[in-house]
Amino acid sequence: MANWSDPRPTAAPFGTTRARAGDAAHDAGLRSYMLSVYNYMASAVLLTGIVALMFAAGGADSPAAQVFTQGGILKYVIMFSPLAIVFAMSFGQARMSTATMQMLFWGFAVLMGLSMSTIFLVYSGTSIAQAFFATAAGFAALSLYGYTTKKDLSAFGTFLIIGVVGLLVASVINMFVQSGPMGLVISAVGVLLFAGLTAYDTQRTKNLYYQVAGTDMQGKVVIMSALSLYLDFINMFMFILRLFGSSRD
């Protein structure tokens, strides 16, 4: 049986306009969702940078220098608290409210700023700026690729995560070996791994929208996706800085 159609010769079949309106609304929802993710992620990076800069203000006399050179329990609290928050958010998100997730997310960004403040004591301001802008450009290109590509990147996810685990093991070993060449290799591999994870996490974030759109989980997924992209950005930045950064005079 033929479809009902508008009598005008150039009109679309009945129902097509409604379908297109639905598609437009869906696309608008996806854009709003992705924009929320990027706003969270970019705001967290900015907050981390401001906190790190303020905590390291004063150089050798800064709070950062005092905390990380004198040792003590506060040093380890700052270093390991962000990891504890990531685990809490990852495994407790089903039981947490969106407001609690937001609070933990911003707390994580602040603690990361305290932890990363030492880069202002070790590297020159020019090196930090160059590494940041190189990371921002690379992140933008890779995230755009992950968002627009039709290729399924999920097959690379397991490989990349295994690579990160191997990278962590190698980094721990190098803490004791103190090998310069090994450190360079670790940094180069780290840049490549987190570059891949940027594209993968972007596509995964986009795909998650189709599962959580309009549900109570959407707000939580936005925050967790922003956290994943934040970690990709920060790790890629740190490895680029270790590769090409110059020490302070």
Rank of each mutant, 00 (worst) to 15 (best):
M1E: 12
S5I: 10
D6P: 01
P7K: 04
P7D: 04
P7L: 04
R8I: 07
R8G: 01
G15I: 05
T17F: 06
R18L: 11
A19N: 11
R20E: 14
R20C: 07
G22H: 07
G29L: 07
M34E: 05
L35D: 15
V37G: 02
Y38I: 14
Y38P: 00
N39A: 12
N39Q: 11
S43N: 11
L46V: 13
L53E: 05
M54G: 11
A57L: 12
G58P: 05
G58F: 02
P63M: 02
Q66N: 12
V67F: 04
T69K: 14
G71Q: 03
G72F: 01
G72A: 11
L74C: 02
L74R: 07
K75H: 13
I78E: 01
M79K: 11
S81H: 00
S81D: 00
S81L: 15
L83P: 00
A84I: 10
V86W: 03
A88P: 01
S90N: 10
S90G: 04
F91I: 06
R95D: 03
S97V: 06
A99P: 00
T100R: 10
M101S: 00
L111A: 05
L114G: 01
F120N: 05
S127R: 06
S127H: 10
A129D: 10
Q130N: 15
A131D: 04
F132Y: 13
A136Y: 07
A140L: 14
L142W: 09
L144G: 10
Y145R: 05
Y147L: 14
T149S: 13
K151D: 12
K151Y: 12
D152F: 09
A155M: 08
F156P: 01
G157E: 13
T158G: 15
I162H: 06
L167M: 12
L167D: 12
L167S: 13
V172R: 05
M175T: 12
F176D: 11
P181G: 08
S187T: 06
S187W: 01
G190A: 09
G190P: 09
L192A: 15
Y200R: 12
D201K: 05
D201L: 08
K206H: 07
K206S: 02
Y210N: 13
V212Y: 08
G214A: 05
T215I: 07
T215Q: 03
G219R: 10
A226H: 07
L229N: 12
I240V: 15
L243Y: 02
L243F: 13
G245H: 05
S246N: 15
